[in-house]
Design a protein around this nucleic acid. Structure first.
Lengths: 229, 229
DNA sequence: AAACAAAATTCTGCATACAGCATACTTGTG
DNA sequence: CACAAGTATGCTGTATGCAGAATTTTGTTT
């Protein structure tokens, strides 16, 4: 089953601006990235251009271009003469990344309090309330998704493209860890309390407070995830 | 004059770990990146694979791979069917990036105060003193280089690879702006005062203070650069 | 002369072909 | 039986060829 440009997930299209034709390149990048995140390509695995290309139904040329792209994102490492290897993250790498992510989200929170419109904030409140419903029902997966959405929303509300961009890069590197770490011993009540404080601070446009909660929240993420690294 | 792997700048080699063979890929990436930073490839320019390849003495295949790599770094934009274009940064893009960079350096300062060895700090003191000599002589270029070195050193002393990595990405995107902005109406004395406070805070391992100075210092960078954007 | 349409050219995107290097295997020797 | 050297296979890295899209040029019409 060959990979085609139409396999691009909808979310990858930029609906503002001129409509861009989907490209095979983007499709391959997205597919291989998913394979890494979902563990189909385990850390340390050497990518075999012939096999992987056949598996995806594309020739080596666009596949190699996608590999270079992902290497630049930090998901793959290039070994000259030996091709690409799925990057291994040490526990320290993950911890370091979470510290940086926490700081970025803190900054995003501060900026969001300055730059978000009232309507923007109402949207986050909406997400928050829906998440709380899921918490009441102890419905894990939709809770998790809405949780992610809230964090992305805060980034978006910062209206700082540079911040969003570097956050995405770092986030992508850790997505796999989060993916496996999701089953860990979460202190669910504590996380929910954090989120209550977040939405309060955001609605009060209290950037300092929001920033602090977001950073503290990320510290707890490390506690939750570190056993899995 | 064909581009060869030997044209790699020394600094690109990772001297720790196994010695890696220089690759044409890295050489092309570095060369094109420089061409963008130095303005040889102006923002908005469409990269012509045929011409550029001939100019560098390489075929289109490795060139295209390098282009994808740089696109992932954010220095190029890919237009499906139209190839790659040197990315244009708006004034807001630059301002946003500087805010994020300032925040990152602030975090790096805090971490450096925790994680740097005394010897590490002495090295920065050394750089600082040499920079001050250059300031006394009003010797602009070496001052500028030492200045850059000090900022990189603080990042390095944070001992946080993730932070160093994302900082480098954002830094690379702005290098061209810094390059042209360097001639601007710098408030040299003010910058020097900032640096005096930085080294004091670092030697006192006062993370809070160092962080604040670094962030304020970056705000001034925006003032110095914004006229050129 | 200007505007539009159509053809020709040029460029990108992808596939394939080939050369050189890395690795695995085999075979010979101590 | 173990180890080393030589051989063979297979993979990566690079160049080239081809098809289709984009752009430019040219011709035609108003």
């Amino acid at each position: 089953m060959a990979l085609e440009a139409a396999d691009l997930p909808i979310g990858d299209f930029d609906t503002r601006g001129p409509i861009l034709r989907p490209t095979l390149h983007d499709a391959i990048v997205a597919r291989v990235r998913d394979m890494i995140i979902e563990g189909e390509l385990a850390p340390g695995t050497r990518l075999h251009e012939g096999n992987l290309g056949k598996m995806l139904g594309v020739s080596r040329t666009p596949l190699r271009e996608a590999v270079k792209f992902l290497a630049s994102e930090g998901l793959l490492e290039l070994s000259p003469g030996k091709g690409a290897v799925v990057r291994q993250f040490t526990a320290k790498d993950v911890h370091d990344s979470l510290i940086v992510l926490g700081n970025m989200e803190g900054l995003a929170g501060q900026l969001a309090c300055q730059n978000a419109s009232d309507a923007d904030i109402r949207e986050v409140r909406n997400l928050h309330d829906r998440m709380m419903d899921m918490y009441a029902k102890r419905d894990r997966l939709p809770y998790f998704k809405l949780n992610q959405n809230i964090h992305s929303a805060i980034l978006r509300l910062s209206k700082n493209e540079a911040l969003i961009s570097v956050h995405n890069i770092l986030q992508a590197r850790l997505k796999r860890i989060r993916y496996i770490g999701n089953e860990g011993p979460e202190k669910w009540a504590g996380a929910v309390a954090d989120h209550e404080e977040m939405i309060e601070a955001l609605e009060a446009r209290d950037g300092e407070r929001l920033s602090k909660v977001l950073i503290a929240h990320m510290d707890k993420t490390w506690e939750r995830v570190k056993h899995a690294v």
